[in-house]
Design a protein around this nucleic acid. Structure first.
Lengths: 172, 172
DNA sequence: ACACAACCTGACCAAGCGGTCAAGAAAATT
DNA sequence: AATTTTCTTGACCGCTTGGTCAGGTTGTGT
């Protein structure tokens, strides 16, 4: 809290005026991240076909990994510790969201627009792969000779993820 | 340290007899995990073709996620915080390991045994996807109606990951 | 001008943390 | 049997942490 106050340029006591407890502040941070996360799914809706919808979703989530790497890490940390603070979000918002997207993907499968894979596990793969570039960004950077990914690197990463997954679900 | 000592059934001072500092103990834990991680790659070597090699690697890493979920989480946490303790491992052992596997995959590509994707990004996808079932195990469990994955669930997860990725790299 | 609410702040506090230490108990070596 | 090394332990310490509080300042409505 002292460090946050310093960075924010106010005394710690004043920070506690706005956020009574550390957990309250933390919860707000996680909520904000979760919102960003959910909005990336707008790409999914109204997509004419899986290649477009899932391709755009990958682009959106890769962009989030690039723009909000620390947000992604906070979310990962929260979940890794058993979601002590936002378990209710997992059980309600996230569960509903997931069920909705599974229905969309299943619709595409039933319409013969993509291979008959398990929509749920496809979603996990999308989450894992895109978030990896944020959560394990330091490892990726180390393996990139210690240099941050360039514009071209990010472009290639996006393209590779889309290439493999879209081919993997039989839409290219 | 007090909690670890309690679980181990000895006084904290005695724990400090074996591990002078908390960091020393932590480093040992991360090293052990890293060893397990690296050994999963044995599947890669001497594989006659990508379907066999990468398929076995996925199986091995999924099994690690199942058997050592906390180990995977510790590793993830360490990397997410910028690898303050095992940066040297990333820069040496991991970099060499990665370069080696990239060469193997590139060999398969050059021999026309699989699609010409970027081996590096394929590796990232393999790591991300398999480790997701450990690192985000709590989320997966919550979305599985709060129940741990059954034997059948794990079998399906493995199969789905292999299905999508192996098709994605053009070997099925 | 007055009153009341909202905001700001330095000093302070209890609790928890990693780590230390002196002294004793067990094992190993001679 | 004597001695030395290894192991075990309860009590203790300095430091950091999240959080509090009394009192001051600023803003707002009448």
């Amino acid at each position: 809290m002292q460090l946050i106050a310093d960075v924010a340029g106010l005394p710690k006591a004043n920070l506690h005026y706005y956020f009574a407890t550390k957990e309250e502040l933390y919860r707000r941070v996680v909520q904000d991240i979760f919102e960003i996360w959910l909005h990336a799914a707008d790409s999914f809706d109204n997509a004419p076909d899986p290649a477009t919808g899932i391709g755009a979703y990958i682009d959106a989530k890769m962009e989030i990994s690039r723009r909000h790497p620390n947000g992604s890490k906070v979310w990962a940390s929260e979940v890794m510790h058993g979601a002590p603070v936002i378990q209710d979000y997992l059980e309600n918002t996230l569960r509903d969201w997931t069920d909705g997207r599974i229905a969309v993907i299943q619709g595409w499968i039933d319409a013969g627009q993509m291979a008959p894979i398990s929509p749920r596990h496809l979603l996990y793969m999308l989450w894992a792969t895109t978030q990896h570039y944020a959560d394990f960004g330091h490892q990726v950077e180390t393996l990139n000779d210690g240099k941050p990914l360039s514009d071209a690197d990010w472009k290639q990463a996006k393209q590779q993820v889309k290439d493999i997954i879209l081919r993997g679900i039989g839409v290219v």
